[in-house]
Design a protein around this nucleic acid. Structure first.
Length: 116
DNA sequence: CTGATGACGTGTG
DNA sequence: ACACACGCCATCA
């Protein structure tokens, strides 16, 4: 499939990332670093972003932003406004590609989920 | 193997 | 708050 970029065949890390992202409650968001830290790859937040590159359907990647709440991944969606539109639909307010009250809607997997 | 790239994060000014 | 440099590490040319 030339349309889909090749992704590592056997990488549980990717599956774990997708699992955590799917568990993000509606109306909440998290960061790449938080997911990386939760999976033990705290120094590899970039790998989480790379994992999103092959995000399968059903994974709300729009709920994953960088640590500032900035929609850094909007360019990878179908259209650049897709990410913001989806977030606004879930009750978030976006200003200048950044989530307002980010600290309030932030969802830390290692804190909220914490091996449940 | 080497260098560049990137959906990141932290430190510094 | 903003800009820049550096570290991090899988992937690609």
């Amino acid at each position: 499939m030339p349309h889909i970029k090749k992704k590592p065949a056997n990488s549980n890390f990717f599956e774990d990332v997708y699992e955590v992202v799917k568990l993000i409650p509606k109306g909440r968001v998290t960061s790449y670093g938080a997911i990386a830290h939760f999976l033990g790859a705290k120094s590899s937040a970039r790998m989480v972003g790379w994992a999103m590159n092959g995000c399968p359907k059903g994974v709300p990647a729009h709920r994953v932003v960088n640590r500032s709440g900035l929609l850094t991944g909007k360019h990878h969606f179908k259209t650049m406004k897709t990410m913001q539109t989806l977030l606004e639909r879930e009750g978030h307010s976006i200003t200048n590609d950044k989530i307002n009250h980010f600290t309030d809607v932030f969802w830390d997997p290692s804190k909220e989920l914490s091996f449940n």
